[in-house]
Design a protein around this nucleic acid. Structure first.
Ligand SMILES: [Zn+2]
Ligand SMILES: [Zn+2]
Ligand SMILES: [Zn+2]
Ligand SMILES: [Zn+2]
Lengths: 165, 165
DNA sequence: TCCAATACGTTATAGTATAACAAATAGTGT
DNA sequence: ACACTATTTGTTATACTATAACGTATTGGA
């Protein structure tokens, strides 16, 4: 267990508590290194996003934040999300208007997301060949200075292999 | 001019009237072939989407439809869009919540979109190598039954080569 | 301590999308 | 032509997503 999750889906039996702890550690480290302030608010939002491997919407976060204590308004959570996105701690899934934690926060990247339409889990891939193929297509069209988002909807191994043959 | 536009950006001097006419012809043909009803409403929405190579939002369409005559409510245009999407006559750009006409309506496909962040024009690409690379990544993750959306934001050749060096 | 920058709170509003139900219209068979 | 059925369209209300604008509080450094 406790396998590295980048490159595939988190195994069903994995120690997710560890995912969270590691993510928060990496976040603290990265923010300290670049002088970014990981305030309690931002920390709390990042924890909530990492509560699973499923993308979370902004209003889902607002709801969860508002449970324990005072009401939280949209700008608060959107500002936290802006910070986390700007520092590469979370990614935005465009087609879902939702956010997932990034397991590789060291350098900036534009990964491919595998989204299970069944359970909702998301895996982050970084296939060099995908970026290379896109680069070739972009070059042939004279397209420059680009950044690609790749979102793949399908069925994860767990949902596929489980019940239905 | 009058070059085929699939595979790259429409040239600046091209006869866009021809783009529209061709698109409407293809739509009529496809719908007739499969017994789908291209009603005046749907036809009008498709024409508006093809009025340029820039994606159009649903509420932009509502505004344009409401100009000439009676008020049009959201469900009307969303239903037309559902029809056009279901029949592959338009594509949805997820990151823009907007829609573009499809220049290759014959068979179902999941293309790559090049989106100029400067002028807003969109080019539809169908690089086999991109799909192959994604397929390889998906296979290695045990991901099945998938469909990918690839959206690339950058600068089109016209905006890149024109004024600024 | 004072200052400037950053972060947070609050209210209102913009933008995107769908639910639910009624009315009209188009195809189908008699 | 007629009734019947399915599809399309109209209408109202509402849900969901995101940002503008402005004021207050906190932070970190001169
Ligand atoms: Zn986990
Ligand atoms: Zn990442
Ligand atoms: Zn054109
Ligand atoms: Zn297409």
């Amino acid at each position: 267990m406790d396998l590295r999750i980048t490159g595939g889906f988190a195994p069903p039996g994995h120690n997710h508590r560890r995912c969270i702890v590691d993510a928060m550690d990496r976040a603290a480290q990265v923010c300290a290194a670049r002088g970014a302030r990981l305030t309690p608010q931002r920390r709390r939002v990042l924890e909530l996003i990492w509560s699973s491997h499923k993308p979370v919407g902004a209003y889902g976060l607002i709801e969860q934040l508002s449970e324990s204590g005072q009401q939280v308004a949209p700008p608060t959570v959107y500002r936290a999300l802006d910070f986390l996105l700007a520092n590469g701690l979370v990614h935005r899934i465009e087609r879902l208007n939702a956010f997932v934690g990034c397991p590789e926060v060291e350098q900036d990247h534009a990964p491919q997301f595998l989204i299970c339409g069944d359970c909702g889990d998301v895996a982050e891939l970084r296939e060099q060949s995908v970026e290379a193929a896109i680069a070739a297509g972009a070059r042939s069209a004279g397209f420059v200075g680009w950044r690609a988002s790749v979102e793949v909807v399908g069925v994860c191994p767990e949902c596929a292999g489980g019940i239905s043959p």
